[in-house]
Simulated assay, not measured.
Amino acid sequence: MKVLVVHNRYRSEQPSGENNVVDAEVTLLDEGGHQVSLFERRSDDIAAMPLPRKAAVPLMVPWNPAVRKELAARLRASRPDVVHIHNTFPLLSPSVV
């Protein structure tokens, strides 16, 4: 089975049990013989963004059309059997659902 795991990783300064769950899920699915791929964003990347892009992050939290388009292209290309969405805040947004 082809599985796409979608997740926005929490900041590394704030360790997250959810990040651990995602990592464990990917490992278990892979060990179970499934083809697993990730569609991720990392909250740590916000700090390195240019100021205008960083200022726009709160505006993209409710709906991020660029990420929605990117995920749609990924879905068309990889055709997963299952998409498992974890955290969408703040860089993915509910648009991925």
Rank of each mutant, 00 (worst) to 15 (best):
S78N: 14
R53N: 09
P62Q: 04
L59T: 11
M60D: 11
A47R: 11
R68D: 12
L71Q: 14
R53S: 11
I46H: 04
V57N: 06
M60P: 07
L75K: 05
A72E: 15
P65I: 01
P58F: 03
A77E: 15
Q35C: 02
F39R: 09
E40I: 08
M60L: 15
L28D: 07
S78D: 15
E40C: 09
A72T: 13
E40Y: 03
L29Q: 02
H34D: 12
A66D: 15
K54N: 05
L59Q: 10
R53Y: 13
A77T: 07
G33P: 02
R74C: 05
E70L: 01
V61L: 07
E31K: 00
P52N: 14
A73P: 09
L59N: 09
V36C: 04
F39L: 07
M49V: 13
E31P: 00
R79G: 08
P65Y: 04
V61E: 10
S78M: 04
P52I: 15
L51N: 06
R74N: 12
W63M: 08
A66M: 11
G33E: 07
E40Q: 10
P65S: 06
A55I: 15
G33Q: 01
D45M: 10
S43T: 15
A47Y: 09
M49Q: 07
E40N: 07
A72I: 01
G32C: 01
V67E: 14
R74Y: 11
E31I: 00
F39H: 11
A66T: 15
V36I: 02
M49F: 14
V67T: 11
P52M: 14
A77S: 10
S43G: 09
G32H: 00
N64D: 06
V57D: 05
S43K: 05
E31Q: 00
L59K: 11
K69G: 09
